[in-house]
Design a protein around this nucleic acid. Structure first.
Lengths: 242, 242
DNA sequence: CGGCCGATTGAGTTATGTCAAAGCAAGTGG
DNA sequence: CCACTTGCTTTGACATAACTCAATCGGCCG
C-alpha cells in the first residue's frame, strides 16, 4: 500500500507537455472580471486536459456544460484519491476561495463555462447558488466517506455502477447510450482511485458481478445493466436496524 | 467486514432513553425565528446527548462554544462512519437546507449556540459566513477522503493524533491539559469509526507509536507527545514527487 | 471488594494488495 | 492489409495488512 515507483507515477499523472491550466488560457478575464454581470465564457477542452491544479490561485468557478472531468488530491508519494467525477451540470472549482486544493482534469472532450469567482460572490443570488452547490458537495463527500471507510470492495463497485447507470443526471462521468447500455469514460485505474481500491480489485469485482448475472461486460468500457434490483441490494446492504 | 450483530449495534449507538434532539428542546424558536436579528440562544448539553439526528428537519445551525461532539452517518446494517469531530468554534448542522443527513451527538458536556437557519441565510453576511464554513468543511472532507481511501492504519492514527495535539484550535474533540499532554474524550471505537478502522487496529497502532517512542500513553485517554517530527513524518509520508 | 466497561494483546482468518503473465483492441508503420 | 507496438484489462499465484474472535487486563464505581 505504500509508495509506488515515483518515476512511473509521475509519468502517469503529469500530462506530458503539462498543458496550461484553463485560467492561463483566459488571462484577459483578469481585466474584465470586475465589469458588468454576464462576464462568463465557454471554452472547449480536449480529453485529459488540466482545468486547474492543486496550488493554483482560485479565480474562477467552472460549470461543465458537456463532457466530463475528474477531481483529485494526492499524497506526496503519489497515492491518489479521486474526489469527484464531474459530469454535465456540475459546478466545481469553488472548493476554496483562495487556492485550489485539488486538481481537475477532463476525461473526454468537454465544454466548460468559466465564471470569475468575484462575480459569483458579489450578488446574493450568486452566493446562494454557491452555497447550495457547496452543500450538495458536502452531502456527496459525506456519503463517499462512508463508502471509503466502511464498505467492501464489492459494495463500492456496485455503488459506482449504480451512479453510472443513473439516467444521465449531473455527476456522471459517462454518457448513456441506448437502453441500459453505457459507455465508461474512465479507466479501471480511475475507478480504483475513486473507490479507494486497486485496478485488480475493481476488475475482479466487476467480474464477480458479471458472473452473477447482474451486469454484462460487452467490452471493457461497455456495460449493460441486467439486474438493477440485485445491484442495488449489494450497494445498500439491508440491515434490520431501527 | 459485514453486518455486525444488530442488537448489539443498536444498544451501542442509540442513547438509551433516546434524548430529544435539541431542536425539540427549543420549540419556542419556531415562533421567534422570523423576528429581529439576534435571535440565538445558548444551550448546555450533557455528554452523549443528541443534538440532532439524520432525518430530522434542519431548522438550526449550531456553534460549539465549548465541549465537543461527533457527527456520523451509518449504513442500514449498523456500520458507522464518523464524519467530523466537532470542537469549540466549529459551526455545524447546515449540511443540507432541508433534512439532516447525519447525526450529531456530544462527547462531553457542552455549550452550544443555536441559530435558526432562516436567520443565517437572510443576510449577505450570514450567507457569506455559511459559505465559508461550507468550503472549510469541503476541504476537510476531501482530506479525509484521501485518508480513508489511501492511507495505512498507522498513517491514519498519526493523523488523528496530530489533529488532537493541535493547540486547541477549532475541530478537536479533546481538551489540552498542560504541556504536550492531552486528554482524549473519545473512545477507541469512535477513533476507529472516524478513521475507518476497528478498535483493535487503533489500539495496536497506538501501541506501535508508543513502543517507537513517539508518544507516551500514561493512561488510555492521557497521551503525551514526545516526538512531533516523527509523528508528522508518519502522517505525511515523504515522497519524491514533483 | 466485586462487577463492569473499555482497552489491550494474542492467535488465526480473510479481503485486498502486490507482482507477474497473458489477453485484447486499437492504432501505426511498413 | 498485415505485423507489430502500445495501453489497458483480465487472470493467477502469492503476500500481508487489517479484521475477527477470544482471553486478559485495568481503572472506576457502587
Amino acid at each position: 500500500m505504500n509508495a509506488p515507483q515515483p518515476a512511473l507515477e509521475l509519468a502517469r499523472f503529469a500530462p506530458e507537455p503539462a498543458p496550461a491550466p484553463l485560467a492561463d488560457l483566459v488571462p484577459f478575464l483578469a481585466a474584465e472580471r470586475d465589469l458588468v454581470p454576464p462576464v462568463a465564457l465557454t471554452r472547449r477542452l480536449a480529453a485529459r486536459a488540466a482545468i486547474y491544479r492543486a496550488g493554483d490561485t482560485a479565480e474562477f468557478t467552472y460549470e461543465m456544460i458537456d463532457g466530463g472531468a475528474i477531481l483529485w488530491t494526492m499524497l506526496p508519494d503519489g497515492r491518489r484519491q479521486i474526489l469527484q467525477m464531474i459530469g454535465p451540470g456540475d459546478v466545481f472549482g469553488f472548493a476554496a476561495l483562495d487556492q485550489h486544493d485539488a486538481t481537475a482534469v477532463t476525461t473526454v472532450t468537454s465544454r466548460i463555462r468559466v465564471v470569475p469567482i468575484a462575480q459569483s460572490t458579489r450578488s446574493m443570488a450568486g452566493q446562494s447558488m454557491l452555497l447550495h452547490q457547496a452543500l450538495d458537495r458536502i452531502h456527496a463527500l459525506q456519503a463517499h466517506a462512508l463508502l471509503l471507510g466502511r464498505m467492501t470492495a464489492l459494495e463500492r463497485v456496485a455503488h459506482f455502477l449504480l451512479a453510472a447507470f443513473r439516467p444521465s443526471g449531473p455527476t456522471d462521468p459517462l454518457a448513456k447510450d441506448d437502453g441500459g447500455r453505457i459507455r465508461l469514460f474512465v479507466t479501471r485505474e480511475e475507478i480504483g482511485d475513486y473507490l479507494g481500491l486497486t485496478i485488480e480489485t475493481v476488475s475482479r469485482n466487476l467480474g464477480k458481478l458479471r458472473k452473477s448475472g447482474i451486469i454484462a461486460l460487452d467490452h471493457a468500457d461497455r456495460i449493460r445493466l441486467i439486474d438493477r434490483t440485485g445491484l442495488a441490494a449489494i450497494a445498500v446492504p439491508a440491515g434490520d436496524h431501527a
